[in-house]
Simulated scan of single mutants.
Amino acid sequence: MKPVVIRVKRLEGASAVPFPAYASEGASGMDVRAALREPVTLAPGQFKRIPTGLSVAVPPGFEVQIRARSGLALRHGIGMVNAPGTIDADYRGEIGIILINWGEQSFRVEPGDRIAQMVLARVYRAEWIESVSLDETPRGSGGFGHTGIE
C-alpha cells in the first residue's frame, strides 16, 4: 500500500513530542500524544482541550479523523466530546483533542501521553439533487429503534 504524504509542523514548545505513529503493522489509527508542559487533571465529568503541538497539511480529498483510544475508555472512562473529530484538508491550526472524563475518578494526563488516534480517510463531495420522491426500501422511514430492543 502506497502511503499518503502528510506534511506536519511542530509548533513552538513541542519539539520533544513524537509525530503520530502506528503502534502495530495492522493498525488503522496513529497514536497522537499530549503536548503539555505540565500534567493536566480531568475531574469526573470535566472536559478539556489537550494540545498536540502539531499542525498538518492534509491533502485534498482526505480528512484525518480523531478518535478516542479504547484502552483509556475501558480503564479510565476517558473519551472525546466530539468523537470522531475531523481535521479538514484546509485546516492549518493546531490539532487539539477534546478529552472528557466519563469515569468516577480524576484522571491525570501527563506530557507525552498517547491521548487519541488519528485515522486518514478519503472524502467524497456530495451533490444534492432535489426530488419529489425517493425509491422505496423495506425499512422505509423507520428509525430510532423501529426494529425493537432485541
Rank of each mutant, 00 (worst) to 15 (best):
M1W: 10
K2F: 05
K2M: 08
V4F: 09
V5N: 09
V8D: 04
E12N: 14
E12A: 15
G13K: 08
G13H: 09
A14I: 07
A14H: 09
A16Y: 05
P18Q: 03
F19K: 04
P20Q: 12
P20G: 12
S24V: 02
S24L: 05
E25V: 05
D31W: 02
V32K: 04
V32M: 06
R33W: 01
A34R: 08
L36I: 12
P39V: 07
V40A: 02
V40F: 02
T41A: 14
L42R: 03
P44E: 13
G45I: 14
G45T: 14
Q46N: 13
K48D: 00
T52V: 08
T52N: 06
T52A: 08
L54T: 11
P59V: 00
P60I: 02
G61D: 06
G61T: 06
G61P: 07
G61R: 06
F62I: 01
I66C: 04
I66Y: 03
I66D: 02
R67H: 15
R69L: 10
G71K: 03
G71F: 03
L72R: 05
L72T: 04
A73E: 07
A73H: 02
R75Q: 15
G85N: 03
D90T: 03
E94F: 14
E94M: 13
I95A: 15
G96P: 00
G96M: 13
I97Y: 10
L99S: 11
L99C: 10
N101W: 07
N101L: 08
G103H: 03
S106H: 04
S106W: 01
F107L: 03
R108H: 00
R108F: 00
R108V: 13
G112A: 07
R114T: 06
V119A: 00
R122Y: 05
R122M: 04
V123E: 10
E127I: 12
V132C: 13
D135I: 11
E136G: 06
P138G: 06
S141C: 05
G145E: 09
H146N: 15
H146D: 14
